[in-house]
Design a protein around this nucleic acid. Structure first.
Length: 270
DNA sequence: AAATTCTCCTGAAGGC
DNA sequence: TGCCTTCAGGAGAATT
């Protein structure tokens, strides 16, 4: 499931192929994604030149002189660079065709999105109210502590709340809390400033490490070149219920927090 | 305002 | 072999 490192890996993979190139054709095979793919896209995007590619949270922004294409991979989406004319497979919903290549979105569960924004994409309703990027200086222990003071939600919920900080999904939230020695169920307002310093630091480090490894390949995620990411082998607790904690050897526990699977060591995390 | 629940969707895995 | 149930999850929307 794509989280920030997977989206960043995808961005870095596709950018060199698309930067400065003009869209020749847009193919929409399935309009029903998270939201309907705008019907005007093929007409609007034809001839448009990709001037900038960037990421905000888990959104990919492909900017042109006419506006910005906003892509989200949901939980099973992947983008690949293919030779033009490559026959589509099941769940290949959307193509951006260029002279020399084709950008193809595959998304079996269709939680992803293909949207259009004619003006400033950061002002788009989906992007306008997002919290800071976790790898930016704005995201710090002091910031987290301040945000947490009035919230009784489990700290894991805080870390996964896009209004607080973006891009931290279930996998890396579990990992960052383990690396920080914090029980994911603990109320956000009952954690000290020094422990939040550690949590912010470990969140950054685990995300950076995952980006270096090309993301985590679990279930549906694949890179733009079809290769897997290699971070899965470094996960300490995620998906490891019953296995020994890498720190103390006690069995890793599993619990539900806010409808999400959580993995933690009851011994090391307090 | 904050917290919780619901919702979209399909494929994998487990039970019988 | 095959049918059924359960689970996984990003994150906006709806509800409490």
């Amino acid at each position: 499931m794509p989280e920030l490192p997977e989206v960043e890996t995808t961005l870095r993979g596709i950018a060199p192929h698309l930067l400065g190139r003009s869209v020749r054709r847009v193919i929409v095979r399935q309009r029903q994604l998270r939201w309907p793919v705008p019907a005007h896209l093929p007409e609007t995007l034809a001839g448009a030149r990709i001037s900038t590619l960037r990421r905000r949270a888990k959104y990919l922004l492909l900017e042109t002189e006419k506006g910005t294409l906003i892509l989200h991979l949901g939980m099973s989406g992947s983008l690949r660079i293919l030779p033009p004319g490559t026959p589509p497979a099941r769940h290949d919903h959307f193509d951006l065709v260029f002279d020399h290549c084709c950008l193809r979105l595959r998304d079996p569960r269709r939680f992803g999105a293909v949207l259009w924004c004619a003006d400033d994409p950061l002002g788009h309703p989906l992007l306008a109210h997002l919290g800071p990027e976790p790898l930016s200086e704005a995201f710090s222990g002091a910031y987290l502590y301040e945000q947490a003071r009035t919230r009784r939600v489990a700290v894991k919920g805080l870390l996964m709340d896009g209004r607080i900080v973006v891009g931290v999904g279930n996998i890396y939230a579990n990992e960052a809390l383990f690396l920080s020695g914090i029980d994911p169920r603990r109320a956000a307002c009952r954690i000290s400033k020094s422990r939040y310093n550690r949590l912010a630091q470990q969140t950054k480090e685990v995300l950076e490490a995952a980006v270096r490894q090309g993301g985590t390949t679990l279930r549906d995620f694949q890179r733009e070149d079809g290769k897997p990411g290699y971070f899965a082998q470094q996960l300490r607790v995620y998906g490891r219920e019953g296995q020994p904690c890498p720190q103390c050897g006690a069995p890793v526990r599993q619990a539900r927090i806010g409808q999400r699977s959580s993995f933690y060591c009851g011994n090391c995390q307090r």
